[in-house]
Design a protein around this nucleic acid. Sequence first.
DNA 1: CTTGTAGATTTAAACGATTAAGCATATATT
DNA 2: AATATATGCTTAATCGTTTAAATCTACAAG
Lengths: 339, 339
Amino acid sequence: MKLEKKVSITDIARKVGVSVALVSYVMNGREKEKRVSAEMVKKIRQAAEELNYQPNQIARSLRLGSTKTIGLLVADIANPFFGQFARIVEDESFKAGYTVVFGSSDEDDVKSAFVLDTLLNRQVDGLIIIPSQGSVRQIRDLIKRKKPFVLFDRYFQDVNCNYIILDNFKATYTATRHLIAKGHRKIGLVAYKTSLIHMKERIRGYREALKEAGLEHSKYLAEIKFSHSFRDFENSFRSFINRHSDIEALLCANNGLSISSLYYASQNCIRIPEGIDFIGFDGGEPFDLYSTPLSYVRQPIEEMGREVVKLLTELMNDSSKVSHIMHDPELVIREGRDC
Amino acid sequence: MKLEKKVSITDIARKVGVSVALVSYVMNGREKEKRVSAEMVKKIRQAAEELNYQPNQIARSLRLGSTKTIGLLVADIANPFFGQFARIVEDESFKAGYTVVFGSSDEDDVKSAFVLDTLLNRQVDGLIIIPSQGSVRQIRDLIKRKKPFVLFDRYFQDVNCNYIILDNFKATYTATRHLIAKGHRKIGLVAYKTSLIHMKERIRGYREALKEAGLEHSKYLAEIKFSHSFRDFENSFRSFINRHSDIEALLCANNGLSISSLYYASQNCIRIPEGIDFIGFDGGEPFDLYSTPLSYVRQPIEEMGREVVKLLTELMNDSSKVSHIMHDPELVIREGRDC
DNA sequence: CTTGTAGATTTAAACGATTAAGCATATATT
DNA sequence: AATATATGCTTAATCGTTTAAATCTACAAG
């Protein structure tokens, strides 16, 4: 099944009997500026139509040094949180005339490097990155190569670059205070053991709230090693929960941990939120459809996604500002249903 | 923030003092075949290293007429079902040396055409498409242009092209029979009103099972107009459910409808599956975490995703076969929990 | 009759790679 | 000694665009 050779600007030129330059001018709507005669414009337009001409974006890209493409590097596109984010990025990018190429890092720095290289070789004009642990060097490299990019969700303290994140401290601080106000004393936090600051900040917010309330601030903290396997989570979480059977409320430091915790609870006859009170992260269908809708920390993800693309397009248009934008979380509290 | 001009093969050639051809040969590992001297190979490799050379995939693409890129057109990447699919496509494509460019059609043929054009202009080597209603012409166009592509999830009866789908008839037929076997008589189906065959087949499977059991086969069928707004669904569904308050069991014809129905139920104090028995589509977190885990029709999505990419890569490598592959659904039945 | 200028179009280089074909030089074969 | 073959490298065309600069014509101004 050989590909029919695509019609090019040259075919049109030949057909009309003019040079390719004229065709190019007309196809780019620069006929006024380049004073192409009205007659020619008509002929060229018609020929293009007849031949069903479609511009070759690859050739354009090579010539112009810009692919009008944005690279999106997420942890896992199958994760609803990132899927939702990807969708917003996609919409905003298309609106701005950009196409999105994506890849998942799986929170693994080796895979992240590989995907990043692939995207860069494809000459993306800019990148939106949810950086994984251990990817600092890759980020530094981007800066050195002056490739425009914006980090999302996480960042690195010692790298000065553009990022848009949640006020992570506030997120867990507020959530923890809410649980305290409800009368809970033995409040657990399920977090990942990682060097990434967003997680550290979420832990700090939780601890700070506990400290201020004069409560123990490390006993009920579960720092779980990241893994793709639920088994691994289960083992860590089981030993945690068994050591603290008196726990009254559970706060989860991100969406994945929330879902995993709920899985564990459902499989182990732990009633949530009746048995153990609960605040999760990022919401989503499972939260809404739970026997009683669950409370969670909400990120203004639409707004953040829009802002990420906006910032990136500015950077791609030669802006040299460096923005660190932090968004306020919203605590979505839900009580038991009437029925 | 001007982009540092990237180092090219020419820079390396200049540095080493050889022609670009040699560098190209070495960079592509063709030094044996092209008998480049060992000494040169070493020098060129080193220079490439020192200059931190990264090949320009755009230039390669233009020359080779192949971008090593796959276009993925889904209905909505934020939908977990498509997100999961996208993830599998991504993994398999990367393994095969392809990058994935994606776009969401929103089940809208105008948007679909726009995204498709964008992807084609980007010279994708092949496409994986979840076609939306009214996009037949676009598909026909692809065939005319001899662009390799594979349809997924849906297809068009009167277009002979590659597709990989579920045995949709069997899916709802089996599910309906299961509900009948459980003793239900008043079994509803929530489906979309659409011309797309996958939906028609699902409706047919449901009807056939009812007919065979001598049951009424259209009374409890809700054909709902597709909309992105839950409000619209709610209105249609409410009038349906009010007209049939005696309904005993509900089958949902896809994931979105399952989730929407569950939302409706949760907001209207309808107990599922105790009040109305339930079988949904495609599973996912909400199904697992529901007060009692819900039954659903499972598509072997990993296998299907892998197969889609495999088929497409074959097509891109000049195979001219046309495959219509149908996968068997699996009915995942779950009973109430012990606790 | 120059010279100038505006209008319409062409020429050709460039983007960064790939690759067939050509050109030396050295070594082997008859 | 003449010829063939192998080795190592270069030349230049090509992919489909864009675009600065050159060209050419017609007409106006001096």
